[in-house]
């Protein structure tokens, strides 16, 4: 456990990157309580791992690894079959623009489709949405870039089909 003096430093760093952690929690948990549990677990793991951070990689890469490792290999409750609505996931400007309801609905369908992906696929989608380069994705996931490109194309195709299914069901 790091000494007490490091606590303020870690709290400050987590403050700076907590949006990233909340995104991971949103993608991997569909219930608020589960999201809070996962958030706390990731924070604990960052705190425990921090003395080992030597700056070999970017801090966001390091924090992403911890967040994804915690979310992926931790015990998570099984996903519910009932579709979950994500009102907070739609960007504020889109919510405000009532005229673009169709677009907003499409985004909801897409989020529901992402919810049905596997844990690794979700991680790849998250990194893609965060505009990470394939090189950074490789650094985080440990999957080579060519393989990641192939996977990304397959995921896009899968999402296209899932989105259609979700739209049809609703």
């Amino acid at each position: 456990m790091p000494p007490k003096v490091q606590q303020d430093e870690i709290v400050k760093l987590i403050q700076q990157h907590q949006a990233l952690l909340h995104k991971v929690c949103h993608v991997y948990c569909d219930q608020e309580q589960d999201r809070e549990d996962l958030f706390q677990e990731i924070v604990i793991q960052i705190w425990k791992a921090y003395p080992g951070f030597r700056g070999d990689s970017k801090f966001t890469t390091w924090i992403y690894r911890i967040a994804l490792n915690t979310a992926i290999s931790g015990v998570r409750k099984a996903q519910r079959a009932v579709p979950i609505v994500y009102p907070e996931l739609a960007p504020a400007n889109i919510q405000d623009e009532q005229a673009d309801k169709e677009k907003e609905q499409q985004i909801q369908f897409l989020y529901k489709a992402i919810e049905q992906l596997g844990a690794i696929e979700k991680a790849i989608v998250m990194l893609y949405l965060d505009d990470k380069s394939y090189e950074e994705m490789e650094e985080i996931m440990g999957i080579n870039q060519n393989n990641l490109r192939v996977k990304m194309n397959r995921i896009k195709e899968k999402l296209r089909k899932l989105t259609q299914e979700v739209a049809y069901e609703s």
């Binding site: 949006a19 995104k23 949103h26 965060d130």
Partner: peptide, 15 residues
């Protein structure tokens, strides 16, 4: 539907 449509909203998610 393109995944890129989500990128804009994704950046503000969690903030």
């Amino acid at each position: 539907m393109s995944l890129d449509l989500l990128k804009q909203g994704w950046q503000s998610l969690g903030e």
